[in-house]
């Protein structure tokens, strides 16, 4: 184990007010499913830093607490131990969670409505983004009329329009087929180039993490802790066949197998 639960001794390296995220020695356990069962430790002393504008990916096997980590970063659940210092964050899940009765425009503007905007104000603000991100003409289309990739695009724009400096993406393309997933990764890279945000990306797809992130944390099986941190320096836009990415991929897979 590389990290232990303790109070941070150094001053924050990231400026949270500008939209960074800093987790130090975060621990979280859940009560066992059955009565009398041992509690399940999801995270054990996980530290993570994302400077404003950085994309940090977290990869790991299923059930290693990746989603819990994001929910802690978003302030949806409190950690049992460790410190959390994060700018306001919005969550995007694997399931698009679009409202079936609302068109793409209204779905994209949901966070604005939640922040108190009127329907018209939210539409006004969401409309140009839909146009810029290839959804023009689909403003009134309900989710069941959209393809899987388009639904995830609407869900991403909804997250973007929340106005939060930090985006927590929880396996955003996990439910898509391989071809659409590759398209969406390129699309997301382009979207983040236009609208830079601090991004925490959770995925079990090592390639996806390497194509999109500045840094990749590899988590162990439960209880999750960081077993490796990979810096990805390759210039963007990245190609999967880039020798640096290929080498990093081998390293990440090795760490995951260990």
């Amino acid at each position: 184990m590389q990290t232990r639960i303790q109070a941070p001794e150094t001053a924050p390296a990231t400026r949270i007010e500008a939209g960074g995220v800093r987790l130090e020695g975060v621990t979280k356990a859940f009560p066992g499913r059955r009565r009398g069962a041992d509690e399940v430790i999801a995270l054990q002393g996980v530290s993570l830093q994302a400077a404003p504008g950085e994309t940090v990916a977290v990869v790991g096997p299923s059930g290693c607490g990746k989603t819990t980590l994001l929910e802690i970063a978003c302030g949806l659940i409190a950690p049992d131990g460790g410190t959390v210092d994060a700018a306001p964050a919005a969550l995007m899940a694997q399931r698009d969670l679009l409202l079936p009765w609302a068109g793409a425009l209204d779905n994209a503007g949901l966070a604005l409505r939640a922040a108190g905007a009127s329907r018209e104000e939210a539409r006004e603000e969401a409309r140009p983004l839909l146009r810029d991100f290839g959804l023009e003409g689909f403003e009134r289309a309900r989710p069941h009329e959209l393809s899987g990739g388009m639904r995830q695009r609407v869900a991403f724009l909804r997250t973007l329009l929340s106005g939060r400096p930090v985006l927590c993406l929880d396996e955003p393309f996990g439910a898509l087929d391989a071809i659409t997933r590759h398209e969406m990764q390129a699309w997301l890279a382009g979207a983040l180039a236009r609208e830079p945000r601090t991004v925490l990306l959770v995925t079990h797809d090592v390639e996806e993490a390497l194509v999109l992130a500045d840094r990749v944390l590899v988590l162990s099986p439960r209880p999750g802790h960081v077993v490796a941190t990979l810096e990805v320096g390759a210039p963007r836009p990245r190609r999967r066949t880039d020798p640096e990415l290929v080498a990093l991929r081998e390293r990440a897979l090795q760490e995951l197998r260990a």
Partner: peptide
């Protein structure tokens, strides 16, 4: 999850 999403907003 939808309730959670709204809370995150």
């Amino acid at each position: 999850d939808l309730r959670k999403l709204m809370r995150s907003f």
